[in-house]
Amino acid sequence: MTAQHPRIVQYDDAAVAEAAALIRAGGIVAVPTETVYGLAADATDAEAVARIYAAKGRPSFNPLIVHLPDLAAAERIAIFDSHACALATRWWPGPLTLVLPLRPDSGIASLVTAGLDTIAIRVPAHRAMQALLAATGRPLAAPSANASNAISPTRAAHVAASLRERVPLILDDGPTSAGLESTIVGSAMILRPGPITAEQLGLPNAPPSEQITAPGQLATHYAPAKPLRLDAISRAPDEWLIGFGAITGDDTLSPAGNPIEAAARLFDALHRADAAPPPRIAIAPIPAAGIGAAINDRLRRAAHR
């Protein structure tokens, strides 16, 4: 039997209208954000949210991020204290997710929060997700649009290759700009590093924990199908080497050693490495300062087996 593929439609008003109609009918749609492509559904519709989990093969104890058009909409769903308001005012719209107490009258399906009394929310900056929020008039749950624990998608083609017939429609607006999932903050700590750095936020990273309190905390996550070796300064004969700076390879995250460029290219490079002939992947060391902390967080989870 020939594998089926989803429809990929280029971003325009008609494409947004088609995607919004699918969402309102209880369906799921892949849509770009500034971080990665997300798999969106109406966060108030339990059956629609269940379709996200089923399409991804995602464990139900792993909560989802809910996307909203603005702070006012977010305040109708979550309880903001003064610190959360300050963060939202400074960084929204943008790649920051806040984990906050859920309002009892939020209307959000309990499957979204995995039964927790908190909710992960953000206001995205990307025009496609904002257009879809406006067209549906619904809060949208949207984890990354890939099979659970696989490499996150930064292009429409990545979504199609990972989810195939499990997603009916992909809204294509080119490669994402940040290339890493959003920074997640809860209880005045960084629960997941991301494009907005600890230095920018002035917050500490949360200590390691077995308890899942926010998306993206599974030990194994963002993983290629092949074994991944970190901090490689040279290539073994059976490896595809992803370079950085002075360390060249089959591919490179940034010839200039720019960590922001490396973040934007990370998942795209891992997808290419996974598709290359060598059975193993190696990746050069990435400095841990700034956004390098988020890159190394993703790489550690990708290499964890």
Score class of each variant (00 low, 15 high):
Leu270His: 04
Trp240Glu: 12
Ala256Asn: 11
Leu266Arg: 02
Pro285Arg: 01
Asp268Gly: 15
Gly257Thr: 02
Asn258Trp: 01
Ile233Val: 15
Arg265Trp: 08
Asn258Phe: 05
Asp274Leu: 11
Ser254Lys: 06
Arg265Cys: 03
Thr248Lys: 12
Ile281Cys: 09
Asn258Ala: 09
Arg235Ser: 14
Asp250Met: 12
Ile233Phe: 11
Ile233Cys: 13
Ala273Gln: 06
Ser234Asn: 10
Pro279Ala: 12
Ala262Gln: 02
Ala232Arg: 00
Ser234Arg: 14
Arg265Met: 12
Arg265Gln: 15
Pro277Arg: 06
Phe267His: 10
Ala256Phe: 03
Ala232Cys: 13
Gly243Met: 03
Ala275Lys: 12
Ala262Met: 06
Ile281Met: 09
Glu239Tyr: 05
Asp268Arg: 14
Asn258Pro: 07
Ala263His: 04
Ala264Gln: 06
Ile233Lys: 11
Leu266Met: 09
Asp231Lys: 10
Ser234Ile: 03
Pro259Met: 08
Asp250Pro: 12
Thr248Ser: 15
Ala273Phe: 07
Asp268Phe: 10
Trp240His: 15
Pro277Trp: 08
Ala282Lys: 04
Ala236Val: 07
Asp251Trp: 12
Ile233Ser: 13
Pro278Phe: 09
Pro287Lys: 00
Pro259Cys: 13
Leu270Phe: 01
Asp238Ala: 14
Ser254Phe: 04
Ala276Val: 08
Asp274Thr: 13
Arg235Phe: 06
Ser254Val: 02
Ile281Asn: 01
Glu261Tyr: 08
Ala275Arg: 14
Glu261Leu: 12
Arg280Phe: 04
Ile233His: 13
